[in-house]
Design a protein around this nucleic acid. Sequence first.
DNA 1: ATCCGATTCCTGACGTGTCAGCAATCCGGT
DNA 2: ACCGGATTGCTGACACGTCAGGAATCGGAT
Lengths: 140, 140
Amino acid sequence: MRTLLDLQIARDLSRDGGLSETDYHVLSTLSEQRDGCWRARDLAAQLLWSTSRLAHHVGRMEERGLVARQPVPGDARGALIRLTGPGRAALAAAAPAHVASVRDNMIGLLTPAEVAALDSIASKIITHLTGEPPAGLPPR
Amino acid sequence: MRTLLDLQIARDLSRDGGLSETDYHVLSTLSEQRDGCWRARDLAAQLLWSTSRLAHHVGRMEERGLVARQPVPGDARGALIRLTGPGRAALAAAAPAHVASVRDNMIGLLTPAEVAALDSIASKIITHLTGEPPAGLPPR
DNA sequence: ATCCGATTCCTGACGTGTCAGCAATCCGGT
DNA sequence: ACCGGATTGCTGACACGTCAGGAATCGGAT
C-alpha cells in the first residue's frame, strides 16, 4: 500500500509543479516559520534528516533558486536556510493539488473511524520509538 | 511515523544479518517459490520494481553470492533468478529477528481492532490505486 | 522464409542518500 | 587569555534508484 501510494502522490506532485516529495517537505517546513527562515540544524532535526543530507539537498535547491543560504547573526558556524520568492511561489502553486492528491488517494477513501484509528496507531508507534508522544495537530 | 519505523526496522535488519530491507524483500519473495526460482520480469512485477532496478540489485546480490542467474529454458532472452545456499541461509538467519522487530515496533503495540482497521485501510487504498482488490493473506 | 514490432534484460548517466571525515567556530574550565 | 572538547555545517566517496537507450530474441503477419 505504501509503495503504491507514494508512487501516486509523487507522480502527482512532480507533474503539477516539478517538485519532488523531498522538495515539498523542505519548502512546506520552511513556510511554517513566519519569516521563512530556519537554522540548518533545526531544519534537519525537524525533517528527521542528517545534516549532511540537508546540506546536499539545500545545495541543489539553492541552484534552482528555491531557497537561499545566509549566515546566522551571532554564530559564524551556522547557516540560515531561507525561502526565496520563487520557492514560496512554487510551494503555493503545488500545495492545493498535493493536498487534493492526498485526500483523493488516501484520506478521502477512509471512514472517520478509520482516520481516527490511523491517528491512534501513529501516536502509539511514535511514542514507542521516540519515548515521547508526538506534537500532534491542534485539537479540533 | 513511517520514517521512524522504517529506520528502526532497517537498523535491526542490518545489525542482525547484514541485509537491507530491499535484500530481504528479494530473498523472501524468491523463497516463496518452492524451487527458489523466479523469471526476472515476474520477480520485478511482484516487487513493484522496474526491471532495471531489479537488474542492478540482482547484480549486486549476485556478487555477494546471495542469488544466481540462469538462462531460461525455451526463451533465450530471459533470466532466472535463483536463491543460492548462502542466500537461503542469510534469509533463514535474518527472518526471526525481522519478524520480531516488526511485531515489537508495530503490530504488537496495536489492539486487534487497530490491526483490523489497518487491514481495511490498506485494502481500500490498494483497490483504489490498482483497480483490483489485493490478493491478501489466507483468511484465518 | 522473412520482416517488423513487441518483449526481455542489461548498461550508462545522472540524481539522491549515507557515511566518514574535515574545517571553522563556540564555550566552559582553568 | 587560552586550551580542549563539543557543535555546526560542508565535502567526497560510495551505494542505490530512475530513466533513456540498446542488443538479443520472440512471434505473428505476409
